[in-house]
Design a protein around this nucleic acid. Structure first.
Lengths: 120, 120
DNA sequence: CTAAGTGTACTATTATGCGTAGTACAGTTA
DNA sequence: TAACTGTACTACGCATAATAGTACACTTAG
């Protein structure tokens, strides 16, 4: 499903969180789609189920998934994340990314073109 | 100069790196401007000089600053970072930020407006 | 009803990385 | 030459990450 970088300084459970967030916001994983179970994914990526559970818990706290004991974990529909503070946080992150790209030599025109391509 | 979050999970030296990058890409720190010395900053923020040195080394590896033994550390002019792989990396980061903002309910119009404001 | 799945939580252990303290060397400059 | 600068090293303690193991509660299909 995806590969983890064991040697990365980023903890394994954080890498999992990042990858699931990416799959969710890009629509690869859709609302109410079931995630692999903690034990199944643990076997697939050869890490401890507790580590998976830690990632799933963080995804739940952040509002990307919901879990039902005995049933599984599911992608949460995005309209349930109508949390303005998360929007603000996302825009702040975007601001940093824009400034960094401009500083590294991406022209404003190139940037806008790139962004428009992303939006459609 | 800036405050560090001792309780953050992000290591102190990484927080330093992030803050310096922010100051550099926003133009607060300009090309060839000298950074505070390792020992001075250590005293200012009350952490060990070795920790500062670790942050400065990472900034240097990433190409944001250069250091001269016996003299000091300076902001590197951005045109010296004409490294296409960094541009690609920056745009990838931007892509993630865009997708996350859209997912969290920011409308494409709102997003474009926001970005245009940032560019000017 | 039961077996096989699911999530969740806990303890204990180990390894790794972070930050510190201390020290020392090499370079610059007034 | 003194006072600054960067750089590098060792050793230590602490916190966190990941693991192994175990167990409980819920769901569901047969």
């Amino acid at each position: 499903m995806f590969e983890l970088d064991i040697r990365s300084r980023t903890p394994i459970y954080e890498q999992l969180v990042e990858k699931f967030v990416e799959l969710i916001v890009t629509g690869v994983l859709k609302a109410d789609e079931q995630l692999p179970s903690v034990r199944t994914l643990a076997t697939q990526v050869t890490i401890n189920p507790n580590t998976i559970q830690k990632a799933y818990r963080e995804l739940e706290v952040k509002g990307y998934i919901y879990s039902v004991k005995g049933k599984g974990s599911y992608v949460k529909a995005s309209e349930f994340i109508q949390d303005d503070s998360k929007k603000v946080e996302a825009l702040a992150k975007l601001d940093k990314a824009i400034k960094e790209a401009l500083y590294l030599g991406v022209s404003p025109e190139e940037l806008l073109l790139h962004i428009k391509k992303q939006i459609n």
